[in-house]
Amino acid sequence: MQSPIELEISRRNLIVSSAAAVAVTGVAGKAAAQPAGRAMNLTTKLSFTVNGERRELDVDNRTTLLDALREHLHLTGTKKGCDHGQCGACTVMVDGRRVNSCLSLAVMHDGDQVTTIEGLGEPGNLHPMQAAFVKHDGFQCGYCTPGQICSSIAVIEEIKANIPSHVTGDLTAQAQMTAHEVRERMSGNICRCGAYSNILDAISEVAGIKA
């Protein structure tokens, strides 16, 4: 596909002309910094690694990891679906574990390693899970997709690491790589387009689960 990115560029030009008339006021994050009763700030500096790259930010303490990624680092592949931990669209990996980035403060991730969808692969060089999602059409609108893919990769690792799930039969035995297990473990990622059956096919291919 000749991507809409070309369009993005032409639109950018269009917008730039309008920006010339606008005075830039304020810098994100700083405006909230007012001294509290205690000698502490409402903003905090942090340094973390995102997709292998060291990033420094000075953020409003209220900034979630999700908004730090999307609004500060412009890594908008991680999606805001509900902002309340009810949909999973914001799933990223922190120090190798999947979490909802909407329910975590950026300031609590100083020193952490964060991997987002952008860190897994890119057009022309897809991660095997991304390729499997394309092949099996494991998405429609695409909005939950980055979260689904991050979760999918984590789920395979979690099963291998013998982390049990709600549907694990014998808690004392090694967790099994089955469709039933994958469905349960993926349930924190809602897809309203209803691509679940195809997502399972994509994960099954990567995980080696027989249909």
């Binding site: 950018r12 920006a19 908008t76 592949g77 999602f133 998405f139 980055p146």
Partner: peptide, 20 residues
Amino acid sequence: QLKTTGRAMYAYEWHDPKLS
């Protein structure tokens, strides 16, 4: 490929670094 890599730009995500 755009959707699975997070490169598809949805409404809230358009960003021009020159704009405030």
